[in-house]
Every structure is written in structure tokens, then in C-alpha cells.
């Protein structure tokens, strides 16, 4: 009990500060609030090689398939290779530092190490050709507003789930058997 007697009044005050229900209330409310509001800033930057802006490219009149060239004729839409970027950015189009990065990487002989954010489980066979070319689906049907993003996306704009696939497959009278998609 001797330790108790050694406690100074100041320490007791600090203790009561942290033990106060107001402190706790503030902590909980702002933690939860912070989780929602801060997420835009804290998680905004992924480890993509370039601070890429989809929206700008769209404004410039590019289609999704101009850079994701496999979207119509391959299973995989693909992420643009260095050569695709250099097709326009060989010479500077803007003052952007990020644009300069492309040429710096290219000069060093590096490829763009894009991180693919839209990924399906490995036992799913998905073909862009089937959905985009044959079923004439717009990219946004599955990918949502990813084309509007102003920073490199760190996650798909829409969550992919089997029920989402199935909903659409049922609506469109596409097959719903297991082996149509699962390999």
C-alpha cells in the first residue's frame, strides 16, 4: 500500500483526466468519425509507380481500351506497358513531375511496376473478351467509377463478389453453372 501514498496529486489529476467518461466519449466518437473522414487522405496514396490520374486521361479523350489494350480481345485487360505511356509522353505534355518520372524510369530501362488492384480469386476464370467484346458491357458496369479517379486507385471502385457476378448473370440470362467461371 505504500506505493499509493507516494502518488502525487498531479498524477492523480492526470489519471482522472484519462479515466474521465468525457475523454472516453471523445476518443470513441472521434476514432469512429476519423476512420470515415480520414480514410480519403490516409489511404489515398498506394504504392503505384506514378501518381496516375484516370480522370485527366479520360478528359483528354482516351478510351479505357487505349491503355488497357487487352480488354476487348484477351482474357486479361492488362496494365499499360512503358511503351504505351511513351506513345504520348515521350516528350513532355505537361509540367507534371509525375510525368517526368515516366521518362526517368524509361531512361533507366525500367518498366512501370503497376500494382494490379482489381483481382479475382485464382479459381475464377474471367475473360474480358467475353464480357466487353461479346456481351458489349461498358467497363463501368463492373469497374464502376474507377475511370473518374484522380489518384491511382488502391482498391477497386466496386467490390467484386460472387453474388454481384451472379446477380448480373441471372439478369442477363448468362450461365450460372459453377464450371462456367470456376476452373
Amino acid at each position: 500500500m505504500s506505493h499509493h501514498s507516494l502518488n502525487s496529486p498531479g498524477q492523480a489529476g492526470l489519471k482522472s483526466f484519462f479515466r474521465s467518461r468525457y475523454f472516453f466519449l471523445g476518443l470513441v466518437v472521434f476514432f469512429i468519425g476519423g476512420m470515415f473522414t480520414l480514410s480519403r487522405w490516409v489511404v489515398s496514396s498506394g504504392p503505384q509507380p506514378i501518381q496516375f490520374n484516370h480522370s485527366k486521361h479520360k478528359e483528354a479523350g482516351l478510351n479505357c481500351t487505349d491503355c488497357h489494350s487487352g480488354a476487348l480481345d484477351q482474357a486479361e485487360a492488362g496494365l499499360p506497358q512503358m511503351s504505351v505511356c511513351l506513345g504520348c509522353h515521350e516528350a513532355p505534355l505537361t509540367q507534371s513531375k509525375e510525368e517526368e518520372k515516366i521518362r526517368t524510369l524509361a531512361a533507366a530501362g525500367n518498366e512501370l511496376a503497376w500494382i494490379q488492384v482489381t483481382r479475382l480469386p485464382q479459381d475464377v476464370y474471367f475473360s474480358h473478351r467475353r464480357h466487353a467484346r461479346l456481351a458489349h458491357l461498358e467497363c463501368s458496369v463492373c469497374h464502376g467509377g474507377i475511370g473518374e479517379s484522380i489518384r491511382p486507385p488502391v482498391r477497386p471502385a466496386v467490390t467484386f463478389s460472387m453474388s454481384r457476378c451472379l446477380d448480373c448473370h441471372q439478369k442477363m440470362h448468362a450461365y450460372t453453372n459453377c464450371y462456367g467461371c470456376h476452373r
Binding site: 474521465s20 468525457y22 476514432f31 476519423g34 480520414l38
Partner: peptide, 18 residues
């Protein structure tokens, strides 16, 4: 006390998110 809690809560949210 409330403000202190809010500050710690916000910081904790940021750190957790990161």
C-alpha cells in the same frame, strides 16, 4: 477531457487506418 479524447481518437484512427 473531451477534446483530449477527440485528439487521441483522431490520431488513433489515422494510425489504425495507415
Amino acid at each position: 477531457r473531451l477534446a483530449g479524447g477527440a485528439a487521441v481518437g483522431t490520431a488513433a484512427a489515422g494510425v489504425t487506418l495507415k
